[in-house]
């Protein structure tokens, strides 16, 4: 019985959201507000049971780890932002969050997103095996595989040149920057196509639920 009620609730709420395709209407607004309320509660419960209870409440009140009074006080100071007269005290916990996050990101981004990416790009320009297979077995894919390494090296180098704004994009430098734009456009197009396919597959999933689980038509 509970399963049937669940399927009906899911189906009706799905229809409420789908109704936005016609225009903004009370059914959509109802579902939208319900969604915001449920999401807020979901994350509140999730954070309580997964972070607050094991990291603060249990060690502080259960095991007497008094040092945890410091983040508790900082947390309460953060909530003080809701009260304009004492709102300035929220700067202290905010400063802690901003500082530690900056310090953490400074190293991790430098290591994983800059150095590792540069290292992965520094590959032999000509892959002998790929070129051998191109000459022994000429075709579209063997050709594309043979030029893969130069494409990556040229794409990354010219893409980074495009992001260098301290020098005017003119002459040879401008030419490289323009090639960089081409690679960025291919990347944006590919990402766009990929996103479209992901959204369509989500839509197919919802439609399958409606026609299979709810209406039993397929």
């Amino acid at each position: 019985m509970m399963e049937i009620i669940g399927i009906w609730m899911a189906a009706l709420l799905t229809l409420c959201i789908l109704s936005f395709l016609y225009k903004d209407n009370p059914f959509y607004k109802f579902a939208e507000h319900l969604f915001v309320g449920l999401s807020a509660a979901y994350w509140a419960v999730y954070y309580y049971f997964n972070i607050l209870y094991p990291n603060l409440i249990q060690p502080l009140f259960g095991h007497g780890q008094l040092l945890l009074i410091i983040p508790l006080v900082l947390g309460i100071m953060m909530v003080m932002r809701l009260f304009p007269k004492v709102g300035w005290v929220s700067r202290w916990p905010l400063a802690f969050i901003v500082g530690s996050y900056s310090g953490y990101n400074l190293i991790t981004y430098l290591q994983s997103n800059a150095l590792e990416q540069v290292r992965a790009t520094l590959v032999p320009f000509i892959q002998i095996e790929s070129w051998k297979s191109l000459f022994t077995n000429p075709g579209v894919m063997t050709f594309l595989n043979a030029i893969a390494a130069p494409v990556v090296v040229v794409g990354v180098t010219t893409g980074v040149i495009y992001f260098f704004f301290s020098k005017e994009h003119k002459g040879v430098f401008g030419g490289f920057a323009r090639i960089g734009v081409w690679f960025l456009m291919i990347a944006f197009g590919a990402s766009f196509g990929y996103t479209v396919m992901a959204r369509i597959s989500l839509l197919i999933g919802r439609m399958y639920f409606m026609l299979h689980n709810w209406l039993h038509l397929i």
Partner: peptide
């Protein structure tokens, strides 16, 4: 390949 090259350039810029 081309998509990864573009994404990598963006990642380096962001980093």
């Amino acid at each position: 390949y081309p998509n990864m090259a573009g994404q990598r350039a963006i990642m380096i810029g962001i980093a």
